[in-house]
Amino acid sequence: MTRVIAVASGKGGVGKTTITANLGVALSTYGEETLVLDADVAMANLELILGMEGKSVTLHDVLSGDAEIEEAVYEGPGGVKVVPAGISLEGLRKIKLDRLENALSKLVQNVDILLIDAPAGLEKDALAAIAAAQEMILVTTPEVPSISDALKTKIVANKLGVEITGVVINREMHDKTFLTINEIETILEVPVIAVIPDDPEVSRAAAFGEALVVRNPKSPTSNAIMQLAADLIGENYQPIEPDKKSIIAKLVEGLLGRR
């Protein structure tokens, strides 16, 4: 049976889309037929992170009634299937979210895991994305506003009958000014299933339009996401240690242009 997992956050800008994109690629590398659907029709970013912008048919077209969902499925890095939302705001008003449910029912027929990148907030579009899922991963940063919004999202999701799989803490900086993992667990009453460190590699990968787990699998963030993916499907993951080259070796490589 296909697992439909919404990745939601409450607050925007916590790295939800980045985690969804990379988690989708990670699940795909484990051999799971994974489809990532960007339900953030107003602020679509998934296609930028995966370098898949400019696709002719998107979720916009499907929700507007101008295309079938099968036409909007594309193959992304690592074999992951992607339904981009479509970046253009043109025709946003034509969208009918009722059609999302119908589109999802068609998508689940051919995949093991369907990841939905839900929009931030608790507007109609966000709720439609959450309500369409069976499970939800709550993404938050260890900051108070983010936790506060995540709490609201969790409560509403519970009301919609969606099971909360766990919380992913993104951009963890081990700073005492932020909430601790246990504090977050206590407030949200949901277990923390992954802690993603703050990593400049994420921004670099996004700038290149590549999934971080593909571009830099040795980075701490990649390891954390691969571990999360493994935990979701009950697999084992052995973290990839970064190369421990000496400064001189790196300097020589740099001079020789091998980097």
Partner: peptide, 13 residues
Amino acid sequence: RSTLLKKYGIKEI
């Protein structure tokens, strides 16, 4: 939990 919510000024919906 209630102490934490109070500490960080988080209001439960």
